[in-house]
Design a protein around this nucleic acid. Structure first.
Length: 270
DNA sequence: CGACACACCTGGATGC
DNA sequence: TGCATCCAGGTGTGTC
């Protein structure tokens, strides 16, 4: 999936294309996503209009007068706006059709994504335990250090825990640890406050930088217009297992932490 | 409470 | 060509 930059890229791109249009039809071809799409979901949308598109972590929230549609893209989901209802591909699970004949179309081969309808003021249970936004001022070195010193996990596992901070997935966790010179397998409680300040600023930097490039496309992520993101070319470690460190040329190490691919330079990261 | 394995699902790459 | 195996951007749930 989509990590935070890809979700934000989707939000920015979709916003003007879905707002202030009347929804005339909703077609759900596959209800069995990560959680089944509830019966009645379509009825909440039909005749409705999106007024605003926001994001919490990796969840997109489509606001309307009657409530909000909450969407998660899972590992392989993407949303785009197409000009007509035709040309349906395999794994196009949801169509939201507007009165100008454009269609907001959800595509997701692995079906780890999800769609929910939220009543006004309802806070979904999946949003209740989320940590701060990584790009907000609430996420800083002091905050992360205070949590880290009480935990006994690898620092990479720490920053990928959405109850501590949202939006840092496997790609950007690898990148931010490289940029701040911290080995991903270091025990969270063994790292100084100063180094956490550096880590936090690199997390913010890499996420912002990727949003500006339209996110990272590895295989199937596409933006709202069907174009890939261009941040892949600027990755320092993720997916570069056989290659040398871009900084010192030493061969990168590849390992697994929490069963996720992990890349680092044993010279530049300590 | 924290740590961790496992679950959900398809498709692409790789190896025999 | 076919089949088995492994791996992939996430994260909630259950168990200890």
């Amino acid at each position: 999936m989509p990590e935070l930059p890809e979700v934000e890229t989707t939000r920015l791109g979709l916003s003007r294309l879905v707002k202030e249009k009347k929804i005339v039809e909703v077609i759900v071809r596959q209800r069995n996503l990560r959680w089944p799409i509830e019966n009645g979901f379509e009825d909440q949308l039909r005749g409705n209009t999106f007024t605003k598109l926001s994001r919490r972590g990796k969840y997109l929230l489509f606001h309307s007068k009657r409530g909000r549609m909450m969407v998660h893209l899972g590992m392989s989901g993407s949303l785009r706006v197409v000009s007509s209802r035709s040309n349906i591909r395999k794994h196009d699970h949801v169509d939201i059709c507007f009165d100008d004949s454009s269609v907001l179309r959800y595509h997701d081969p692995r079906r780890f994504g999800s769609f929910f309808w939220l009543a006004p003021k309802q806070i979904h249970r999946l949003l209740k335990n989320l940590g701060p936004e990584p790009l907000s001022k609430h996420f800083d070195g002091n905050y992360l250090y205070e949590i880290a010193k009480r935990r006994k996990v690898a620092v990479k596992t720490l920053i990928m825990n959405s109850s501590i901070v949202v939006g840092v997935g496997n790609i950007y966790a690898n990148e931010a640890l490289f940029l701040s010179g911290i080995r991903p397998d270091r025990l969270s409680s063994s790292i100084s406050k100063q180094r956490y300040k550096g880590l936090v600023s690199q997390i913010k930097r890499v996420l912002n930088s990727s949003i500006r490039s339209g996110g990272t496309t590895l295989r199937d992520f596409v933006r709202e217009d069907g174009q890939p993101g261009y941040f892949k070319q600027r990755l320092f470690v993720y997916g570069r297992g056989e290659l040398g460190c871009k900084n010192c040329k030493k061969l990168l190490q590849e390992t697994r932490i929490n069963n996720r691919s992990t890349f680092f330079c044993s010279r530049c990261q300590t």
